[in-house]
């Protein structure tokens, strides 16, 4: 049995892990909820964001510039992807949409490998994130601590966009009833573009923020994609609160399990998902009617 301070530390760490998972999953879930497209390229876009961060910080050394330029770049990527590819698939079955994003994911990963090579790249921790903080019950990396705040702020911004703007209305209407959004007419297509781009930027920014923590390499996104899927299944499809709460739950499961035996952290995550599917198949925040 792990000690109480260790359990507390892991619970805290679960919060940090969870907020990041929530951010990754939220980009996936708004695209899914509004456009009905399950974006299999989400992991690749996460990775692309990290590379954007790597390129900018390697050139300028500025983390903030990295976020700004990186987000702008991801916005362009999102627009190009939507206009060039995803748009062709709105009228086609969900399965075709899944397949084309799956293929796009492969192309992005291998394209990055061709451009940057297979070696891992480093993004330095920004100067304000150096070091380690004494929190009383545990020592915790400064950057990860700050990240909790940054990600929480970003999640709040997303909340404002979704719940306080007209585009947010479209997104939420789409989650409630995709057909009703269709009735709204011509504006929908432009909203779809914005929503898709927003989701891509969310994926990219997650990658950028995570870049100083992990090694940046072409395959770094794949495990996040699967974890984001689990988060969405737990939280409920297309539900923004579901993505946030699901992300926090997933983070806690991984972390608390690690206090006992880290080898089982992933397995435990899937086990909880299976259990939830038995007890509440639509997910915590999902509505029964949605698929």
């Amino acid at each position: 049995m792990p000690s109480a301070p260790l359990l507390l530390s892991q619970a805290f760490n679960g919060l940090a892990l969870g907020t990041l998972l929530a951010l990754v999953a939220s980009g996936l879930t708004i695209i899914l909820g509004t456009l009905g497209v399950l974006n299999f390229a989400h992991g690749a876009l996460f990775m692309l964001g990290a590379y954007a961060m790597y390129v900018v910080t390697a050139q300028t050394g500025s983390f903030f510039l990295g976020i700004l330029v990186g987000a702008a770049f991801m916005l362009v990527v999102g627009v190009v992807l939507e206009r060039g590819l995803i748009r062709l698939f709105y009228g086609r079955p969900h399965e075709d949409q899944i397949l084309v994003t799956f293929g796009a994911g492969i192309v992005i990963v291998e394209g990055v490998r061709a451009l940057f090579g297979a070696n891992t790249q480093s993004v330095p921790t920004p100067s304000w994130g150096q070091g380690i903080v004494q929190l009383g019950f545990l020592f915790y990396p400064t950057y990860r601590l700050e990240l909790i705040g940054i990600v929480a702020a970003l999640l709040f911004v997303l909340y404002l966009i979704l719940y306080r703007t007209s585009i947010g209305l479209v997104v939420r209407a789409g989650i409630e009833d995709a057909r009703m959004v269709g009735i709204l007419g011509i504006n929908v297509r432009r909203s779809f573009l914005l929503v898709f781009a927003l989701g891509v930027v969310a994926a990219g920014v997650s990658g950028m923020l995570y870049a100083p923590i992990v090694s940046v390499e072409p395959d770094m996104g794949s495990s996040f994609l699967v974890e984001a899927f689990v988060v969405i299944v737990i939280g409920g499809l297309g539900s923004y609160p579901g993505a946030v709460v699901g992300g926090l739950i997933a983070g806690e499961i991984i972390s608390i399990t690690s206090a006992f035996n880290s080898a089982y952290s992933e397995v435990m995550l899937y086990a909880v998902m299976a259990l939830l599917l038995v007890l509440r198949p639509q997910g915590l925040f999902g509505s029964e009617g949605r698929v």
Partner: peptide, 20 residues
């Protein structure tokens, strides 16, 4: 002895245990 899953990317929980 922190055994971590294959293809792990985030080691925070294992490292917390190691650090402590």
């Amino acid at each position: 002895k922190e055994v971590v899953p294959l293809s792990a990317t985030d080691y925070s929980s294992a490292l917390l245990n190691i650090a402590n």
